[in-house]
């Protein structure tokens, strides 16, 4: 369970997050949407301990991130993260990208790590690309490798930061399919995305953020069909 308790964050004197309060139960899929600059990515980075926050508390499985005794490296093993621009290691093949962390962090043998990487490539549908370098993969393939890389650590939580917004339209679905399958298998997911189809299919809750605040929350039906706030109506008009 991820508990976010009235978290606020400032970059110098500019406030990027204001009193964010949210609980994500195991097995849930939460979709975060909102205009750019509304603090969505920053929130994900805070949950992963990649950015500090100044007020409030984030607790992952009972462990507080702001506690100085918390080992953030250890905590991150349980939280996978997928980025907008894939961020694959350019000097490694797809297989090496996936097997690096299991070998170095989990101390798996090379054979075991590579076996696991192959299984994951199988699962995301591109086992034939094991020896390809990121530069020779399409955007959709790169993102699927990136998802496999996160899954290799067998995380309890997966966070997606606009995973399809840098992709050509014809490649979006192949990535969404992988994400939908993952959600249906019971993975706890936190996704920053504007993909309505994805939200409709798997989101348990949708959060709408604007200017660093959670403005509105609800199920797919509640949010997309009957937005309450003016900001959400305006935003939905733009993305629909």
């Amino acid at each position: 369970m991820i508990e976010i308790k009235t978290v606020s964050k400032w970059f110098d004197d500019f406030q990027v997050l204001t009193d964010i309060h949210e609980t994500i139960e195991r097995g849930q899929t939460v979709v975060i949407c909102g205009p750019s600059g509304s603090g969505k990515s920053t929130l994900l980075r805070c949950i992963n301990g990649l950015e500090p926050y100044q007020k409030g508390e984030i607790i992952v499985d009972g462990v507080s991130l702001s506690d100085p005794r918390t080992n953030l490296y250890k905590l991150r093993e349980n939280i996978g993260m997928v980025f907008q621009r894939f961020e694959l290691y350019p000097h490694m093949t797809a297989l090496q990208n996936i097997s690096l962390a299991p070998m170095k962090v989990r101390k798996l043998s090379r054979e075991k790590a590579e076996k696991k990487a192959m299984d994951l490539l199988e699962r995301v549908g591109i086992p034939d690309k094991a020896d390809a370098y990121p530069a020779n993969l399409s955007g959709g393939q790169q993102q699927r490798v990136a998802i496999a890389r996160s899954l290799a650590m067998e995380p309890k939580y997966m966070m997606f930061d606009e995973p399809t917004s840098a992709l050509d339209p014809e490649m979006i679905q192949e990535v969404l399919d992988v994400m939908i399958a993952l959600a249906k298998e019971g993975m706890t997911m936190l996704c920053v995305t504007h993909e309505m189809g994805f939200a409709r299919e798997v989101a348990d809750e949708i959060i709408f953020m604007d200017f660093g605040k959670i403005v509105e929350r609800g199920t797919y039906e509640e949010f997309f069909k009957n937005p309450k706030s003016e900001r959400a109506k305006e935003f939905l008009k733009q993305i629909l």
Binding site: N48, L50, Y73, R76, F83, H91, A101, V105, R149, M153
Partner: peptide, 25 residues
């Protein structure tokens, strides 16, 4: 910055990230 974050998010430590990602690239 996100490439480094991606490495951290898989549980790699600073020195592992430096040794396997930053320095080789």
């Amino acid at each position: 910055k996100d490439l480094t974050s991606a490495a951290y998010s898989t549980g790699l430590t600073y020195s592992q990230t430096a040794r396997h990602i930053l320095i080789p690239i």
